[in-house]
C-alpha cells in the first residue's frame, strides 16, 4: 500500500554580517523514480534568486542559484508531495544514468548471468566493473580489516540479499543512536569505534561492510516519516535521513538506523557514493562569517 507524504525542509543560514555574493547548489527536492511518484516539488530561496535545475551524475535533481543582494540570512526551502510505494528502487541512480531510465543503454540484465543476485554474479568481472564506483572505499566509508572480518562472519551461509540484511541488522544492533556524538565529517569506521552515531554514520558503516563483501551499495538521503501509525493530516517534525541501497540482483533499500527495509515511509531525495555526493546545500560566499544553521523538516501523511 502506498503513502502520500508532504515534505517541507527549511535550511536557515545566519551570518554575522551581510553576505554579498553567494553561489550554491541545493539537493533538497525528491527525485522521481519507480519507488516514488513526485506529485509536486518546489525549491524557494530568500532573498529571491533565479533557479537553474539540472540532474547530476547520480540522477539527483539539483537547483543551482546565486544571491547577490546583501543578506544576513539565507533561507532555502524545499517542499514536495510524494507518493511512495514499496517497490524496489530503480536503476535511475546508477552512475551516469539520466533521469529517464529508458534513455540509458546497458541497464538491462547483465549478460550471461542466469543466477541474478548470486555471489557468483557479484564476483563476475562485468558486474564488478559496472558497479565499480559502488564497490570502492571512500573517505566516509573506508575499508578496514576488522569490519571486513565482521562482515565475512555475517555473510557465512547467506546469499547476497540475506547477507545485506544481516549487515544492516548488525549495524543497527551495534551502533547506538545518539545525536551529537559524531559530526558531519565522521566516517563510518570512526562511528564504529565510538559505538554511537546518527543515521549518516549508520549508513556509512553499512556501506563499508557491504562493499567489503563485494555487494555494490550506495548512500541514499531523504526523509523518514517517524510513525508507521501516522494519522492522515497530522504534521510531524522530522529530520533529514540517510539509508542505503544494496544491489543483490536488483537494488534493495535498507535502513540500518531502524534496522529494516526502507519502505513507504521513506522519501528519497539524493543518491551517491557517500554523504559527499548528496550534501543538501553546498556553495561558497563572500562576506560575513557563518554563525548559525537551523534545519527544520516537517512531514505530513496525506493519504
Amino acid at each position: 500500500m502506498s503513502w502520500r507524504i508532504a515534505t517541507s525542509h527549511v535550511s536557515r543560514y545566519r551570518y554575522a554580517s551581510p553576505v554579498v555574493a553567494s553561489y550554491n547548489e541545493a539537493r533538497m527536492t525528491p527525485s522521481p523514480g519507480p519507488e516514488q511518484l513526485v506529485l509536486d516539488s518546489e525549491l524557494r530561496v530568500e532573498p529571491s534568486a533565479v533557479l537553474f535545475r539540472y540532474v547530476d551524475y547520480w540522477g539527483t535533481l539539483v537547483h543551482a542559484f546565486d544571491v547577490h543582494e546583501p543578506h544576513d540570512e539565507l533561507v532555502v526551502t524545499g517542499t514536495s508531495v510524494v507518493e511512495t510505494t514499496p517497490t524496489a528502487p530503480s536503476l535511475a541512480g546508477e552512475p551516469g544514468a539520466p533521469a529517464d531510465p529508458a534513455a540509458k543503454p546497458g541497464t538491462g540484465p547483465v549478460a550471461g548471468s542466469d543466477d541474478p543476485g548470486s555471489w557468483q554474479q557479484l564476483r563476475s568481472t562485468a558486474l564488478r566493473d559496472r558497479f565499480s564506483e559502488l564497490l570502492a572505499p571512500t573517505s566516509y566509508a573506508p575499508f578496514d580489516a576488522e569490519l571486513a572480518g565482521a562482515a565475512g562472519d555475517l555473510a557465512a551461509g547467506a546469499d547476497p540479499a540475506e547477507a545485506a540484511e544481516r549487515v544492516v541488522a548488525f549495524v543497527h544492533d551495534h551502533l547506538r543512536y545518539e545525536a551529537g556524538t559524531t559530526g558531519v565529517s565522521t566516517s563510518g569506521l570512526e562511528a564504529w569505534r565510538l559505538g554511537t552515531g546518527v543515521c549518516q554514520d549508520f549508513a556509512h558503516l553499512a556501506l563499508s561492510m557491504l562493499r567489503q563483501l563485494g555487494i555494490p551499495a550506495r548512500y541514499t538521503s531523504g526523509y523518514l516519516h517517524p510513525s508507521a501509525e501516522a494519522s492522515i493530516g497530522d504534521r510531524v517534525p522530522g529530520a533529514s535521513h540517510a539509508w542505503i541501497e544494496a544491489w543483490v540482483g536488483r537494488f534493495v533499500a535498507l535502513d540500518p538506523t531502524i534496522g529494516s527495509a526502507a519502505g513507504v515511509r521513506h522519501v528519497t531525495v539524493a543518491r551517491g557514493r557517500d554523504y559527499a555526493d548528496v550534501t543538501p546545500l553546498r556553495g561558497v560566499y563572500h562576506g560575513g562569517e557563518h554563525v548559525q544553521l537551523t534545519v527544520e523538516v516537517q512531514l505530513t501523511r496525506l493519504a
Partner: peptide, 13 residues
Amino acid sequence: AGQVLADGILPRQ
C-alpha cells in the same frame, strides 16, 4: 550516454 562502457570496450572502472 556511456555507450563505450556499456559495450565493454573500455572498462567503467
